[in-house]
Structure formats: structure tokens, C-alpha cells
Design a protein around this nucleic acid. Structure first.
Lengths: 182, 182, 182, 182
DNA sequence: AATGAATGAGTATTCATTCAT
DNA sequence: AATGAATGAATACTCATTCAT
């Protein structure tokens, strides 16, 4: 039954991601129905709605962190940086809530979520450093504003429901601001 | 008595802006208390909570539109564009909800809000056009991505609670992306 | 509408007294139905279930205190004391919860209830003092044990659902313990 | 394996006594944790929460009955009666729930509990009879009121959280009522 | 026109009880 | 036989909206 429980936890988390991604203020019942379990099961796994939300957030942040870490080893640091940037924005455009997760990364209360956010920001900082060393990103772009630019671009892409073409042009604009001035 | 009513409407709107700016999920009661009127009075003026929210939104959008129009007559179109951009972002950083208003401008349901959003986007388009004509903004930056960049930057600045210095550096990055390539 | 509200408050309190008297763990819904009002109305008047319970308790304690005060002026202090004692026990036998109120008088958390309890205990102490001075109650019966005896007798009479005859005989036993030894 | 089961039953009962003694409204889970078994084990032994509560009650009543029976053979019937009375009250003062058990003895629903209550009351009646025959208790104190006095004194001692000294003085008052009038 | 009271639908959370391992 | 997970009914409390004054 350990397996069953883990399975259910996964299903609940997935359901929560979908439901809250679509309707941020959705009820826990909604999540339970979507996951196909009783409501008490949701509360057994996540004793509080806040804890459920934080678990979703944590998962998202960890995924982003992992992606950043994967790319950190790349031979082409510039490409790694811009690829990560673009992927985050692309995902945000389709999954409304990743942008919120990014925004919340600074404020997240829960310990796990905070750590995941910290890890993600560190990994992104790593990507930035290497890209700057390799000359792919201007040296005077410090971490805070670059991170803010990532968040903002992701949220901007989300808010308007941008078409892919426009999103690419938006990224082109942003990248041009990040590239070293000739 | 007409005057009293208009007065109350104003007070309610102001109160709503403050309250929802601070706590997006606040109750209508909260707004009534802040405005110093009974809750029934709020509902007399705005028969639905959604209508109240839309009124707040409309007001914000109209203010932005008016500011854009004022600047449209400026002798220095480049400066007008970047000033507007910067002001919007600066305000968003302090008033959480303006960014949402900007985001909602595309999706706004109510008729008034939609019109206000349309007007605001048109005015911003005007600023963009003139700035491009004057050579202050690159010609290949079309409206959709530029508008998305405005929204995103505003939201990015809001989400993280950026300090003014960092906000300025963020803007510098964004502006560099918007300026014509040499 | 002030009148209506006060009216409703009364009805809710009365309903609560009946309902909680019968079923101590009853739900707030039950009280609302019994009072013939919507559940939100109950919560408007008593924002918390605890506050509702305390209001019931307070009311009961105040009634007892008032009765004690009335009797305090009596020309026959002995009779006043034993009358009060008997009335409390008689009421407790029919209204389950008065005994609890008496018990809670020492522990009541809410400020109003605490004060009412204090007032009631003081009034009872007064009755006791005078009865002792008049020689109707033995002088070595101090307040704490006499009060405990009152509470206990009331609760004893309640718990078993005593018939009036038996109750009278119980009181006779208790009174004999309180009278001065010859 | 029969031994294991009986062992578990004991542990659950003990745990239930502790838990419900402290927190009358406690959950079955609480009991399971305290007993160090899974919740399903509790329900295997006591298919219903009511049955568990009744088992606790039965156990308590049986203990009291046994104590009364032990004392029934004593050479000094008066002392036996007053000792029993005092012990019950002393225990009630520390173990909140014994008083409830005594009260419930009249109303007990379950068959076992009812029988245990009956047995306990019979044994107490025996003690009373002998004490009356020996002249230690007045002859006109019939069983019903004397039993009510026992219950009441026990509950009175519990409700207020009486100190031992006061409890003793309370008992002195009660005993004086029970002793034959000179 | 303005007020504050009343309402019921909705929400998070708990708990006794039942299943699957 | 024992376990822990799953379940749905129940409960306290909130909120947008409607009535009576």
C-alpha cells in the first residue's frame, strides 16, 4: 500500500497543478475530483490547502532548478543560458502558474519551497555567470535585474496569452538587451 | 442628492483601489468599511462584485491612457515613450494591482473596461509609433511584443518587490533591447 | 431594524439554551433551525460557537446571580439561603446545563461569563454569610466547600434524572449536613 | 496469538481511559496512537466508538463494584461505607471521567455497561444497608438519595478542581448529613 | 438614497468507519 | 490478525447578495 499511497500523492499533485494552473482560487474539492480521490485523501497527504499549494510550487521550482543544472554542464554556456530563459518563458506561456511560482520563489514561506526556490535561483545564477564569462551576456547585467527580467518576461508572456511568433519576437527584444554592447 | 451619490461612488472606488491593491481577495465588506459607508451602498453603486472590480480596473486603465495621451504631444517622442514605460513600471512596483490591470487589459470582460483597455493600448501604440519614427526605438519592434514587454517588466518589477536601484538597472536592460541596433 | 435584531438575538439565545441543554455537543445549524433563522444570522450575532456558548452561560449565571441578590434582602436569612439552594437544584434537575454553567463558573474564559460567575459566587457568599450569622447554617462551613456542595448537589440531581420526591430527600440530607450541630 | 489480541485489547482500553479522561471529545485516532497500535486494530476490537466508550465505562464501573464488594466484608460497616464514599470522591477529583461513569450508570445503554452499573449500585446498596444496621448512617436515608449524593459529591469535587483540604471539608459536611441525628 | 440585518451556498478541515495489503 | 490508506458525511465559519427600515 506504500505504492498506492505514493501513486495517489502523485495523482493529487498532478491534479492540483492542472486545477490551480487554470483557476488559482479553485477549491480543494475540485482537486480531489480531478484526481479521482475522496477529499479526505487530499487532506491526508497535504494536511492544509497551503501545504498543497506549496507542494505544487516546490515541484515546479525543483523542475526548473533541475533543468538549469542540466544545462549548466553544457559546452556552450551562452546557448545554455538563452535556452533556459526561452524554455522557462515558453512553459510559462502555456502553464499559467509557473510564472507565479517564479514570483513566489522570493517570498515562499514553506521551508521546502523556500529551499527549492533558493536552489533554482542559484542554478540560474550559475548559468548567468558562465554565459557572462563566455561573452554571451553583457558583464554589467547583475543577477537581481536579470532574474527580474526572467520573471517579468515569463509573466508578460503568460498574461496576454501570446502566440508563439510574438513570444519569439519578445524574446528577441529581451535577448538584445542582454547581449554585450558592441 | 446627486452630489452625495457621486461623492459616495468616488469614495467607494478609492477605497476599493486601496483595499484590493493590498489584498486582492478582500471582501466587499472590507471596501465598505474603508469607504465609511454601509455595504448596501456599495451594492447600490456596483450591483456586483465583478462590476466593482471592473470599475477599479477601468479607472486604472483610463489613468494610464490619459497619461499616455498627455505624453503623446511631447516634443521629444523618444523621451515620451521611455518616460511612460518607466512610469508604468515604477507605479506597478508600488501599486501591486496596476500590473494586473495591464494584464487584464487584453481579457477584460466588461464593456467599459474593455474600451478603456483598448484606448490605453492605442495611446501606447501612438507613443511607440512616434518613438520609432524619431529613431528612439528600433523599427522592427512591433506593437504586440513591445506591449508584452511593458506588461512583463511591470509584473516582474512587482512580483519580486524590487528596490528602485535594481528596477532602474532592469529598465536599462530592457531599454537597450528596444533601442535601434547600431 | 434594531428591534428586529435584538429580537433575533433573544430567539437565538433561547434556542441555544434549549438545544445545548438537551444535546451539549449540538451543531450551530441545529440552533439556527430551532431559532428559525439562517445560520449566518447566528454567526452575525455570535461570531464564534464558543461565544454563543458563553453567552448562554452568561445569561444563566446572571439569572442565578439576580435571584441570589433578590433573596439577599429577605428578612429570614436562613430561609433565603435554603430557598436559593433548593431552587438552583430544582432548576438543574430540569435544565441539564445549568449545572454545567455552575461548574464552568470557576473556569469560564470569556470576560463577561467570568464576571457573571464572579457576581453569582459573591451573591451566594452573601447569602451564606447572613445565614450563618442568623444561626441557620453552621459557622464552620466555609465558602469553598459550601459552593462545591451546591454544584455537586445540582449535578447529582441532574445526572440521575431524579424524581421530585427523591430530590427533596436528597436536599434534606444535604441541609442536615449544613445545619449547626446541636 | 490469542494472547497478543488480549494484550492489545488491554492496551487499547488503558489508552482510551487515559485519553478520554483527559479529553472527553478525543478522536479514536488519538487512542490508537496512545496505545501504539493502528487505528484499524482499535476498530477490530471495538467495532464502534460507542462500544469503546462503553467498554471504558464498564471497566470503571466494575472496578468500583469490586472495591465496594471488598469493603462489604469489613468488620466495621460504618467505616467501610464512608471509606468507599471518600475513595470514590477522591478518585473522581483526579480522574475526571469516573464521575461521568457514575452518572451514566443509570442511563448506560450497552448491556455490559448496564450490568456493571447495576452490580455497582447493588454493592453500594449493600454497604449502605450494613452501615445503617450498624448505626453509622441514619436509617431514613434511602438508597436513591444516598446514591445521588455520592454522584453529586463526586461531580462537585471534579467540576471545581477542589484542593484536597477543601474536599475533606466538603466530605465532612456531607457525612454530617448522613450520620444519625442525635 | 442609505443602512445594517438576514440569507444560503460554499470552503477548509475533521472523524468514524471501511478496504486492500 | 494488524496495519495504514481511503472515504464521505458533518461542522464551523465566510461572503456575495437581498430585504426591511
Amino acid at each position: 500500500m506504500r505504492a498506492d499511497a505514493r501513486d495517489n500523492r502523485e495523482r493529487i499533485l498532478t491534479a492540483a497543478e492542472e486545477v490551480f494552473g487554470r483557476t488559482p482560487g479553485a477549491s480543494t474539492d475540485e482537486v480531489a475530483k480531478r484526481a479521482g480521490v475522496g477529499i479526505a485523501t487530499v487532506f491526508r497527504h497535504f494536511p492544509t490547502k497551503v501545504e498543497l499549494l506549496e507542494a505544487v510550487l516546490t515541484q515546479r521550482l525543483e523542475r526548473l532548478r533541475d533543468r538549469a543544472r542540466e544545462l549548466a554542464g553544457s559546452a556552450d554556456p551562452g546557448r545554455a543560458f538563452y535556452d533556459f530563459f526561452g524554455q522557462v518563458v515558453a512553459e510559462a506561456a502555456s502553464k499559467l502558474a509557473i510564472a507565479d511560482a517564479l514570483g513566489a520563489a522570493g517570498t515562499a514561506v514553506g521551508d521546502e519551497a523556500r529551499q527549492a526556490g533558493e536552489g533554482m535561483r542559484q542554478a540560474f545564477g550559475e548559468l548567468l555567470d558562465r554565459a557572462q564569462d563566455s561573452g554571451a551576456v553583457r558583464k554589467d547585467a547583475a543577477f537581481p535585474e536579470t532574474y527580474a527580467l526572467l520573471i517579468g518576461t515569463a509573466r508578460g508572456a503568460t498574461a496576454v496569452g501570446l502566440e508563439p511568433t510574438v513570444r519569439d519576437r519578445l524574446l528577441a527584444l529581451v535577448y538584445d538587451g542582454l547581449r554585450p554592447r558592441p
